[in-house]
Amino acid sequence: MDQDLEGLSREELVTELVKLRNAVRAHRDTSMHDLCWHHPGMWDLLPEKSAINPVVPEWPVFLRGCLRYRQSLDEQLPDAPRSKDEYSGGDGG
């Protein structure tokens, strides 16, 4: 699947690595309401393109998942700052 890397020079590999690291950092540094958004830009960094759309849960199932995700943040990041800022709009992408 990653044969495209085999023909790259060291410099090209480093450039690719930096691009991927920057994408991971941007995703890691997401905060507040942006944590909940779909991030197809990450997938666009892969050489193979896909027209596959993710399966989207029905609303009640989705909302239960959102609640569980937020609970996991309390468990995994108990000392993270909290905010009461409401979502202000935008597409998140």
Rank of each mutant, 00 (worst) to 15 (best):
R70H: 05
E75H: 13
S31G: 00
S83W: 09
G65Q: 08
S88E: 13
H38Y: 13
S72G: 15
G92R: 01
P57H: 12
E6A: 15
P47M: 07
G65C: 07
G92H: 06
D29A: 00
G92Y: 01
G90F: 14
D34Q: 01
L20E: 05
E58D: 12
R21G: 00
L46F: 15
A51D: 12
V18P: 10
A26I: 01
S72N: 14
V56G: 07
R25Q: 02
D29Y: 02
G65A: 08
S31H: 01
A26L: 08
A26V: 04
L45M: 14
F62D: 13
D74L: 12
E75M: 09
P60I: 02
S72F: 12
H39E: 04
D29F: 01
L63A: 11
G7R: 01
S50F: 03
Y87P: 07
M1R: 10
C36E: 15
E58G: 14
R10P: 03
P40V: 02
R68M: 03
P57R: 06
P81R: 13
L45T: 02
H38A: 02
Y87T: 03
F62G: 13
H27N: 13
K49N: 06
C66S: 09
V55N: 12
P57Q: 09
W37D: 15
G65K: 00
E12L: 03
K49G: 08
G41H: 00
N22K: 02
R25V: 02
G93A: 11
Q3T: 14
G89E: 06
D44E: 06
R70Y: 14
P57E: 07
R21W: 00
G90L: 06
S88R: 11
S50N: 09
L45H: 12
S31C: 03
L20V: 03
G65H: 04
R82C: 01
E86D: 13
T15V: 04
R28N: 12
W43E: 13
V61R: 07
E86W: 11
E6G: 08
P40A: 03
Q3C: 10
P78K: 14
P60R: 00
E16F: 08
G65W: 04
D4Q: 08
T30V: 14
V14L: 14
G93T: 15
A80K: 10
E16N: 06
V24Q: 02
E75S: 11
E6L: 13
R82W: 01
E48Y: 05
L73W: 14
R82E: 05
W37C: 06
C36S: 13
V55I: 15
P81N: 09
S31F: 00
I52Q: 10
S88W: 07
V18S: 04
D91K: 10
V14W: 13
